[in-house]
Simulated assay, not measured.
Amino acid sequence: MRKPLAIMAASAIALSSLILAPAANAGETITGSGSSYAAVMINECRSAYTEHSVTYNPTGSGTGKTQFANGTTNFGASDSLYSSGAPKNFTYVPVIAGPIAIAYNVPELKALRLDGPTLSKIFLGEVTKWNDKAIADLNKGVKLPNETINVVYRKDSSGTSNNFSNWMKQVVGSPWKVNDVWTTAAGKTFGTAGDKSQGVKNTMQTLPYSIGYFDLADTLTTNFGIAAIKNGAGQYVKATVAASAKFLAAQSMKSNGAVLFDYNKKVAGGYSVTLVAYGMAPTKNGTAKADAVRGFFDYMLNTCAPAKAAAKGYVAFTGKFLSNANKLVATID
């Protein structure tokens, strides 16, 4: 009888260990929505996070802000701040940054330089051919195709559009306005619309001789060229993590986490078409779900992003920016 008893005892111990062992994602389930620019990074972090279960829907920044304000989600993510309709008792948390890549689908064009005025004319439909003199003057010795430029822009309410239009307004001026809606920012409708960052990428893949703007992360899965854009120091710089980080470091951050971009600032080697994605979280909720959001944001800033951001095409915060972001995380409740 000793063997059966031993087996029963071993089984009981094994069963007790199964009952006591904490399961992965055994905590709260929290939901978020918003920025499609930051989606690759957020999904990378949430899939590796084990304290709580996190779901994220890359609806675009505009919808993310609305859903968070309405209480539909536990947290939001946006590349632009509220201009109206902000909820009470919440905080912004800058969670990730990175370049807006100006991508082009022109296989025979291996390198491309563009400045602000020329880029503006392309997106306004005033420069319509790839071999236009305005482009040729910036690309001496480069054989440019005699093909029509197909502009692709964001259809949805987009923080990426907000930041790119802000860059246009600062660098070029009229007629550009800062707005989440591209056609409002440009003051006209020109080109083909793509839904969210991934929609711009997918549209460009089916549209030869196209140009568009979206996150560097999504360009890594394409064969698109990336234009070198003239910065405030007069240099033509391609969208890279290092060049974006250099430009970001020269900017300032307010106590509420908002980064104030001076896109004309002379930063040698800096890529100026850079943005910040913000998390949005409650500060007087007093619930376990709010605690879970605080835990996830802390994990993104201090564990996930430092380890994984650069490989995914993003810039992780460091130094005084990270310190300020962590102070804001601490206010989530």
Results as ranks from 00 to 15, higher is better:
Gly60Gln: 09
Ser210Glu: 02
Thr55Gln: 09
Leu18Val: 15
Val329Ala: 08
Thr50Asp: 12
Thr31Asn: 13
Ala292Trp: 02
Trp176Ala: 13
Phe321Gly: 12
Asn326Ile: 00
Asn231Trp: 01
Gly125Glu: 05
Leu114Ile: 11
Asn70Met: 13
Asn43Tyr: 01
Glu108Cys: 01
Asp132Cys: 05
Gly313Asp: 02
Lys284Gln: 14
Ala277Ser: 15
Ala281Thr: 05
Pro117Gly: 11
Pro306Cys: 06
Ala281Asn: 06
Pro4Phe: 09
Asn285Phe: 00
Thr118Ser: 09
Thr148Arg: 12
Arg2Ser: 13
Ala239Met: 06
Trp176Glu: 10
Val95Gln: 06
Leu15Val: 14
Ser35Pro: 09
Leu138Gly: 03
Ala305Gly: 04
Val93Cys: 07
Phe123Gly: 04
Glu126Met: 13
Lys308Gly: 04
Glu126Pro: 05
Thr184Gln: 15
Gly85Cys: 09
Asn202Phe: 00
Lys196Gln: 15
Ala227Tyr: 02
Phe214Trp: 12
Asp79Leu: 05
Met280Glu: 15
Ser53Leu: 12
Ala245Lys: 14
Asn231Tyr: 03
Val172Ile: 12
Ile30Gln: 04
Leu18Ser: 11
Val200Tyr: 04
Ser272Cys: 13
Asp180Ile: 07
Ala14Leu: 15
Ser272Leu: 12
Ala228Lys: 13
Asn74His: 15
Tyr49Pro: 02
Ala111Met: 08
Tyr37Lys: 02
Ala185Glu: 09
Ala193Trp: 02
Val54Thr: 05
Ser272Gly: 08
Ala249Pro: 09
Ser17Cys: 14
Thr72Asn: 11
Lys133Phe: 01
Tyr104Val: 02
Gly34Phe: 01
Ala245Tyr: 00
Ser61Glu: 11
Lys254Trp: 00
Ser61Pro: 12
Asp180His: 03
Lys312His: 09
Val315Pro: 04
Asn202Val: 03
Thr283Asn: 10
Ala227Lys: 03
Asn202Thr: 13
Lys169Asn: 13
Ile211Gly: 03
Asp333Met: 10
Phe296Val: 05
Leu301Lys: 00
Leu5Asn: 08
Pro4Asp: 07
Ala103Thr: 11
Lys289Trp: 00
Gly191Met: 06
Asn326Glu: 13
Gly319Lys: 04
Glu126Tyr: 08
Asn162His: 13
Trp167Ala: 13
Arg2Met: 13
Phe317Val: 08
Glu126Asp: 14
Tyr278Gly: 07
Lys308Trp: 02
Val54Ala: 01
Pro87Lys: 09
Val293Gly: 02
Gly269Ala: 12
Asn264Met: 08
Ile211Tyr: 01
Phe297Leu: 11
Asn57Thr: 14
Asp195Met: 11
Ala243Tyr: 00
Thr222Ala: 03
Thr183Cys: 04
Met253Trp: 00
Thr183Met: 06
Pro4Met: 11
Leu322His: 03
Lys254Ala: 14
